[in-house]
Amino acid sequence: MSSSCPLGSTRNPFTAVDTPAVGVSIEKLSKNFGSQQVLREVTFAVEPGEIFVLMGPSGSGKSVLLKHIVGLEQPTAGRVTVHGLDAAATATREQVRIALVFQSGALFNSLSVYDNLALYPREHQIADEAAIRDKVMHALQILSLEGTARKAPSELSGGMRKRVAIARALVMEPQLMLYDEPTSELDPVMSATISEIIATLKEEYHVTTIVVSHDRELALGIADRVGILMDGALVSLGPAAALHAPQDPRVAEFLSPKIDLQNPRFKNLEK
């Protein structure tokens, strides 16, 4: 891997060609599902080439926000732009390569690992089969997945499936990488490996990265900045170091929950 990618550019891991790094802007984004308000006027920007980690309790709207960035959801109010283009427009995905690593991996179960990775370049006729093969094998090598090419996704462990999902995203040569809970359901060692992979992709290729997670260690380890979402509203935004001494008591409680064995809510459950 080369480390000479200039600032403000994203390096293609396969061709070593530099393209302008992309930024994301979210302005007063609100989203309702029926009568339920999931996002409330969320505003922040992600700078080109940075790793932004969005944290928050389960159900706070993190994944929904991610889906707005990739164009899978339409805002009820407000605007999301990627590289200055409306994220909800299909044309944006034709101009900016955005890859989303789903929490479940969302691998195509009817295809082998190799065909999962080859699907994007084949469908978009980006290269001939020999070049696609090189690209896929290179991506598998980057993620230490040699030997899994012919396996079905169902034959892999949870950690391997996550890495295959990242490799599949990498084959798209993304300018913007989005991760939805990349370390959930993984043991601490595998979580650290995934965190290292995310950080390496950013360091080596300057890929703008947004990670949705409630893993404090991941945020402290790799984030340039961290936003915290609670009940659909952004309650904290700042450098990762600020997580050590949060000002907001709700954020402090979320980041360092205390186990209260005397909690009256759980006493006398039989009643």
Partner: peptide, 25 residues
């Protein structure tokens, strides 16, 4: 069953993020 399963397990969403229209494929 196949398409519903792909939808529930986010494979359809994955196709859309890869700019591969499910109607085509």
């Amino acid at each position: 069953a196949e398409l519903a399963s792909m939808k529930v397990y986010q494979e359809i969403d994955a196709l859309e993020t890869m700019n591969i229209p499910p109607a085509r494929m």
